[in-house]
């Protein structure tokens, strides 16, 4: 069953008088619990695609469905609510909050978005930190963690709310080869454990190999 349905979307950016066609007439569908990668060179539209699926941006035309929701029709508040309840994000630069420890970073969505009690939060956070293998680093601040550990914390933060879909934009770009492969394998393990759909973008051939479904983008078109 398709979790993500993309119908003929285009995204055009207007920069002064110049029009940049980031995506052109793209249609695809992504099944639940799949492990999908968007690949392609820089500027091919990978990040735009993830932003549109992740309700961070809106297509110029076309429709996007995530589950039963037509996410391109959401307003600002609905988008924020949907992101908080159904989506998880992993970023290239980890984007952990520097003033929070690894534990607190993972706890953040439960506290600020889900408003869960302290005891429930603690149970969930410790469990997921254990799953991603950084339980012993839980009290460290991001600047005290290695790149791999930071991204593990980011994976844990993305999964803590049990989203239907996790979007990861170049999650391995700032990691060495070994760490990159480890993170992708961790994501796949998490997919198996939580039955969450993972969509990530990469241009690293080694990382691509780990994906189950690969969509290649070139100049904003699916090839």
């Amino acid at each position: 069953m398709a979790l993500v349905q993309i119908d003929n979307i285009s995204k055009i950016y207007q920069t002064g008088v110049v029009q940049v066609k980031a995506l052109q007439d793209v249609s695809l569908s992504i099944d639940e619990a799949s492990f999908v990668s968007f690949v392609g060179p820089s500027g091919s539209g990978k990040t735009t695609m993830l932003n549109l699926i992740g309700c961070l941006d809106k297509p110029t035309k076309g429709k996007i469905f995530v589950g039963r929701e037509q996410v391109d029709a959401f307003d600002r508040r609905q988008s924020a609510m949907f992101r908080g309840s159904a989506l998880g994000f992993i970023f290239q630069s980890f984007n952990l909050f520097p003033v929070l420890t690894a534990y607190e970073n993972v706890e953040y969505p439960l506290m600020m978005i889900k408003n869960e009690s302290t005891s429930k939060r603690k149970e969930k956070v410790l469990k997921i930190l254990d799953s991603v293998g950084i339980l012993n680093q839980k009290d460290k601040f991001p600047d005290q963690l290695s790149g791999g550990q930071k991204q593990r914390a980011a994976v844990a933060r993305a999964l803590i709310t049990h989203p239907k879909l996790v979007l990861a934009d170049e999650p391995t770009a700032n990691l060495d080869k070994k760490s990159a492969i480890n993170i992708i394998r961790l994501m796949r393990t998490m997919r198996d454990e939580f039955k969450t759909t993972f969509i990530f973008s990469t241009h690293d051939p080694e990382v691509m190999k780990e994906a189950e479904v690969i969509y290649t983008l070139e100049d904003g078109r699916l090839v």
Binding site: R76, M81, S85, F97, Y108, R157
Partner: peptide, 16 residues
């Protein structure tokens, strides 16, 4: 700004 973007992306309500 990036931090605010991250907060917003992961679903923090604007009011929060």
């Amino acid at each position: 700004i990036r931090e605010i973007g991250t907060m917003s992306a992961i679903g923090t309500a604007p009011i929060k």
